[in-house]
């Protein structure tokens, strides 16, 4: 068996080390080694987006990343979205808009939407749908999800614009 590797990351703001085999995906390590089970496994082949996490500032399907590739990386998972002050605006919008039923796809949608709004605080409906093309939901029919992202963008525009200025997007 291939030797296990020590991988050092910054995970949700904390320096985190883990031991993994080269064949383990980032998704497996998050869930099975680190007990961060908020990130869900859907298709495991990059179609459904349930396992979306933010790796070095970009959304990725964690089922298609080897955990060893995360050496030195900054990672953000659904566990890092809410703060001590409460839920993130996008989480509130999903709750208020009933943008979920079974909930398996929700962490992926939240990660992808939150990242997207940080890049594009005033999106059109078309841009939202294009951005979420890599996330599948088998319950809601998508409309409530899209409306919730629109609501988050309108209700919390100051929040996203401020975020945007701080992160230097446009």
């Amino acid at each position: 068996m291939a030797k296990k590797r020590v991988v050092t990351t910054t995970l949700n703001g904390n320096q985190t080390e883990f031991l993994c085999e080269p064949r383990q995906t980032l998704l497996e390590v998050l869930r099975d080694n680190l007990d961060l089970t908020g990130t869900k496994e859907g298709c495991s082949n990059g179609n459904c987006g349930a396992c979306t996490v933010i790796l070095n500032g970009r959304p990725v399907d964690s089922c298609l990343v080897l955990a060893v590739e995360a050496e030195g990386a900054t990672l953000r998972t659904i566990e890092g979205v809410a703060t001590a002050a409460g839920l993130d605006p996008i989480q509130k919008a999903f709750l208020e808009g009933a943008a979920l039923q079974c909930g398996i796809c929700t962490p992926g949608f939240i990660m992808q939407s939150e990242w997207f709004l940080s890049q594009n605080p005033k999106p059109t409906e078309d841009e939202i749908r294009f951005n979420l093309a890599g996330n599948l939901c088998r319950c809601t029919g998508y409309d409530k999800i899209v409306r919730s992202v629109q609501d988050a963008a309108t209700t919390w525009q100051d929040h996203y614009m401020k975020n945007c200025h701080e992160k230097g997007c446009h």
Partner: peptide, 9 residues
């Protein structure tokens, strides 16, 4: 090619 997540990689 794929969605945004795929395009990241």
């Amino acid at each position: 090619i794929g969605g945004v997540q795929i395009q990241s990689r």
